[in-house]
Design a protein around this nucleic acid. Sequence first.
DNA 1: GGTAGGCTAGCACGGCTGTGCTATAAAAGA
DNA 2: TCTTTTATAGCACAGCCGTGCTAGCCTACC
Lengths: 212, 212
Amino acid sequence: MPKVVDAIERRRKLVEAVLRVIRRDGLEQASVRNVAREAGLSMGSLRHYFASQSELMAFAFRTVIDRIESRLATLEPEPDPRRRAERVLAELLPLDDERRVENELWLAFTSRALVDPALRELRDEGYDALRAGCRAILTDLSAAGLAPTDIDVETGRLHALLDGLAVHAAIRPDIHTAHSLKAAIARHLDALAREATAARAPTESALSRTVR
Amino acid sequence: MPKVVDAIERRRKLVEAVLRVIRRDGLEQASVRNVAREAGLSMGSLRHYFASQSELMAFAFRTVIDRIESRLATLEPEPDPRRRAERVLAELLPLDDERRVENELWLAFTSRALVDPALRELRDEGYDALRAGCRAILTDLSAAGLAPTDIDVETGRLHALLDGLAVHAAIRPDIHTAHSLKAAIARHLDALAREATAARAPTESALSRTVR
DNA sequence: GGTAGGCTAGCACGGCTGTGCTATAAAAGA
DNA sequence: TCTTTTATAGCACAGCCGTGCTAGCCTACC
């Protein structure tokens, strides 16, 4: 019985080693050899758990996805829609060290999936999940009158904003602090609320249109 | 005299070869050998023009930056601020094949710069240029009353939106068509204009704040 | 106690990488 | 015309890569 448990534990350790290497040296350094060394294992032993390099990477990425989903699932209930949206979005941004690693993995994974078809399916899964999350937030906000009613186009905008902020946080962590990231999100939520309000006063928006 | 000209021409050909390889096989395939083969040259010959691999990549990226800037510089004058913003932003999105290649190069370059310090400076330069462009657009719009006056936070939002859309277009070109990208931008510009209007009627925004 | 199988280690192979180096051909300058 | 630079080619080296493979260990089960 401890067999299986140990196997799971080993795979978990290996994934942590992958994340450490990627964080420290970048995805290109996350070779089988380097990960094995980082985990204190031999190559052969690693290959006992993961038959190929793609499998290892895919498992690492899946672990990250699971982590994020589990964090979202354990969010404490929040009655206020606006605060609820902020809480969820905060979980999706690289605000602390743990999520910063996940974000860098996501970025590296995304760019590798452009080339490695074996990773594409999983990358798409992550993409779809995030987009669905954005849609859920907007549906929730819209029901409370805090966002426009055409969810589709707003989903694209919020999703792009999130991923764009994530990219910026990854390449310029000095500029994009947790504070500035949260400020950008807050501003977007403010804007959505104002749009929802403006939509109920069409004269205003018509005026702004003629002005241009 | 034809010496220098030919040298420039050769470097240009080599950069085109780099872009072709990256587009076809991804950045990881853009090795010295592959690029030389693509350009119909020997490795030694390539290394006569570019002493190192980083130098070749950096030159390719600089060429792309120059291309974008030159396209922006040759935009025909547009009196209407809103249309002017749309024109500029359209140049910065991967709407056609040429810009799609540039976008993929940007993405690959960005993720490699996370690891290769030699590329970091140039990547920062591209980042700064794009951010400055966003700021200029918003300053322009704001002066026409078509965007809020706090340029700083709006710059971050627009910049993130642009890069997020670029990432999405790269990983899901089937979903993110030229049309949907332009729609997202148009929506953002609409929202900015409405925000500028709402800011002049603070009662409205105060109301929406108390609602939450 | 014996034995099958999960587990670990490590070597070897072929292939790719960037770069240093030398030798040849072409062109430019004297 | 002779010489010096420039351009091209291609080999060699050391290093990394993923993966196939074999040999032993160690534990669990019969």
